[in-house]
Write a protein that binds this DNA or RNA. Sequence first.
DNA 1: AGGTGAATGTTAACACTGTAAACATACCTG
DNA 2: CAGGTATGTTTACAGTGTTAACATTCACCT
Lengths: 209, 209
Amino acid sequence: MAKDAQKQGYHHGDLRRALVEAAIPLLRTGGPDALTMRALARAAGVSPMAAYRHFEDRAALVAAVADDGFKRLHARLRAAAESPERTLRKPQQTARAGLQAIALAYVEFALEHPDEYRVMFGSKLAADPAIAPQSRNEVFAFLREGIAMLQRQKLVRAGDPQAMAYTAWALVHGLVMLAIDGQVRGKGAPSPEELTLTATELLMFGMAG
Amino acid sequence: MAKDAQKQGYHHGDLRRALVEAAIPLLRTGGPDALTMRALARAAGVSPMAAYRHFEDRAALVAAVADDGFKRLHARLRAAAESPERTLRKPQQTARAGLQAIALAYVEFALEHPDEYRVMFGSKLAADPAIAPQSRNEVFAFLREGIAMLQRQKLVRAGDPQAMAYTAWALVHGLVMLAIDGQVRGKGAPSPEELTLTATELLMFGMAG
DNA sequence: AGGTGAATGTTAACACTGTAAACATACCTG
DNA sequence: CAGGTATGTTTACAGTGTTAACATTCACCT
């Protein structure tokens, strides 16, 4: 019974998980700045220094929260890929529509949880290999696999799928960042969803041979 | 003689500018976290609270630094647009090549000063209208004007230039963010410049009618 | 069973941060 | 020259990350 996440007595049970989970409500209310070691420990009902038994320093803690976010994002994208009933506008070939549905799910996730998304791409986590969120690579691999599949179906022109995946990711990531920063809000500006649709259509036009 | 930026005696001369300028070396050495009120004041040879005579709080100071960054970025893009000798690969129609040169200049700027770029898009500055960097809008307007010009020359398909400009900006911004985060570094990954070229070509293929 | 080392949590302390309040000085305008 | 205003300073407080020393509990071995 050592794997259970009880939280009574001197030892916590699974403090590491508790800390990472306590991060979400903190983020939603106070933004990324509220993600402090001490506040996290407080939320988990534990003394400030307890967190340091599980994370080297604040950067490592933040990286773990980011990693958790990428896991949830990955799950969301997979779900969107498997039930692509959300093909708005021009269903076209279903494979491409599926890719578009994935892009929409990505944008939705980020706009629903902007602070989490900001943490995921906040500090230069990927630079330090010790704490680089590995789930991030899985998300990217998922995307690249999608592109490669479209190539096999001749729905996307031949070429390095890696570079194309980077391009697609950059486009969606950029859209999200601009939207989160409140930059798309000006008068006459399209809604983020509308913008995502037109943007992905433009890109897929270019990728289609 | 009140407008000169002397720094002797009780009054500084132009402390506001001095603070914003002191931010750059701090950023380059210590990253965005080194951008503290007290460190800035120290660098300007002034007491910690002096900064508060010119900036409401830290967020406002950071916003001013970001605004300064957007001004320099804007200048850089304008320079790239006026001397487009940098047309690598497939010069095509010169107007489109010019847009590609602008994209390259954008990426170069960001990769040369990653910490400044991170500050520019760091906290949600644009959300608070009181401190939202206005130079940012000018950069976007510049980009949108470029797209509109291409439309007039029939080099880009008709459509809302605003949405297209958002798309182009998002693509480049996303590329930069991924590159800065060290995400493009994996084996077999293209160089950021190479990636920028292929990405912009894909997008322009889609935007061309 | 009992003891022992490792894992985990706690308390105390330090240097640093943002920022409010009260005070001091220099400039500028009448 | 007088006085108000802009600017800079000192002091103080709460909150932060993090180190060091100490305390408790768990897991395992004989």
